[in-house]
Design a binder for these strands. Structure first.
Lengths: 244, 244
DNA sequence: CCAAAAGTGTTAACTGTACACCCATGT
DNA sequence: ACATGGGTGTACAGTTAACACTTTTGG
């Protein structure tokens, strides 16, 4: 959690947050032909990462809360967000595991015991342009870095399961809502888009047919060519048409 | 809410339920070629219905809580349930509207003011066999009946929006997860299945091609013919193959 | 000129849609 | 025999997948 001093003060007043309800965010990025997840690592806790998360103010909508939490981590505003599930098994984060996780982190425990109660968590995933993100470690964090989706570090609670569910939902929605573009820079080549699809859906596409299919959707506009210096035909770049 | 006396007593202890978090259930049924929703009407409140809902015990998983709430309403166990969204706008159920709704219902208000706080609600929808349900009005309800999806009564809060979202999710998942069978009796004719699909997706299908498509999925087993007494060829009945 | 990758024309395979005919059923 | 609705064969159309060829780029 990345709390301002003002927010920490508010934490003392139990009623300022909704109790026993949290938000966990899976922040997806794409870089080096790999799908990445942004994960902070709590200080003084060995070899354990958690999803960036937070709580909901009494007068705050849950989508607003998720945007606020994401802005604290990535510095970005108006992020593409999707609410994909609620995680509320009775034993998903017991007081024991929470306490264990809190060892050595005196600040949190002082805030009161409400944080040790059983929590239900709302899962959001965010799709961000990797190149635009400046990861920010919060005041309780040791680090905040990107991790390869295929080589995730050790995750606390059920956060590993939450990431898996997020990916499944993204796979299901990729064609339906055409949201992949949020993971790429403004202008991109067809090859980059294809690699993105292949990585997310974990299956290969034929270069020729992929190109035609994407162009037939009528959502791309062709920009200028991109000269890389390679000894081959320069590819066009494309941009996602916002609205026509 | 259909509370037992034991549960009402527990209500006095605020900590027995998770505060400010509720579950709302959209119970879908199919009858007379129409999609139906089971809706209780609170007593002493004029012309206003609500979704059947409830709260989550401290040591209870959210799916278990939804099953419990549904069992209280329908008498059925092991209902098909899908969690389709969370409703948490800051103003979705303010203290004012809640109080207004509570006028004349002294029992609830006596339970304490925690129920007047802002709530976040987890939306589930259930698919049940209409013929197996015995609607049960809870202790706070005047009635509990099926309503036509196309002629819903006046609904409180954002419950109308919740039902709409539930339907959209059902439409999206109908082909993907093949869940329509839960809305039909164990054995059904192809025509009944077609009418179900047409009603949910709100578009017509060709009789011949629909039949072939369903059979090609390999999930139906053909049972004996159904003789209705009509002067035409008797249709086969089918059953959904559980697993092979 | 050559290798490598981009872009596109053409064809084959598949899937979905439409029309047809035959079959079973009770009057 | 006839009307009615069920089941299935077949042809047509549209979509998707596969193959091939041409174009562009820098060495």
């Amino acid at each position: 959690m990345d709390l301002t001093s003002e927010e920490i003060e508010k934490l003392g007043v139990e009623t300022s947050f909704i109790q026993q309800l949290s938000i966990d965010c899976v922040i997806f990025g794409f870089h080096g032909e790999q799908l990445k997840v942004l994960l902070p690592k709590l200080r003084d806790i060995d070899n354990t990462w958690t999803l960036p998360g937070g709580y909901i103010f009494q007068k705050e909508g849950i989508d607003d809360a998720a945007q606020r939490i994401l802005q604290e981590r990535t510095g970005l505003r108006d992020i593409y967000l999707e609410q994909f599930g609620v995680f509320g098994k009775a034993d998903r984060a017991t007081a024991e595991t929470m306490k264990k996780l809190m060892e050595g982190n005196s600040i949190r425990v002082k805030l009161g015991d409400w944080i040790l109660k059983r929590f239900v968590s709302i899962g959001y995933y965010a799709l961000v342009d990797f190149t635009e993100v400046v990861p920010r470690a919060g005041s309780f964090d040791e680090t905040c870095d990107w991790y390869d989706m295929k080589q995730l570090p050790n995750l606390a609670f059920d956060h590993s399961e939450i990431i898996q569910k997020a990916l499944e939902n993204l796979q299901l929605m990729l064609d339906y809502k055409l949201v992949g573009f949020h993971l790429l820079p403004d202008a991109f080549t067809m090859k980059e888009l294809q690699k993105l699809y292949e990585t997310i859906l974990d299956k290969p596409f034929r270069r020729d047919n992929f190109q035609r299919k994407m162009l037939s959707l009528g959502i791309l506009e062709r920009l200028e060519k991109k000269f890389t210096g390679a000894a081959n035909k320069a590819p066009y770049t494309y941009r996602f048409k916002q609205r026509n």
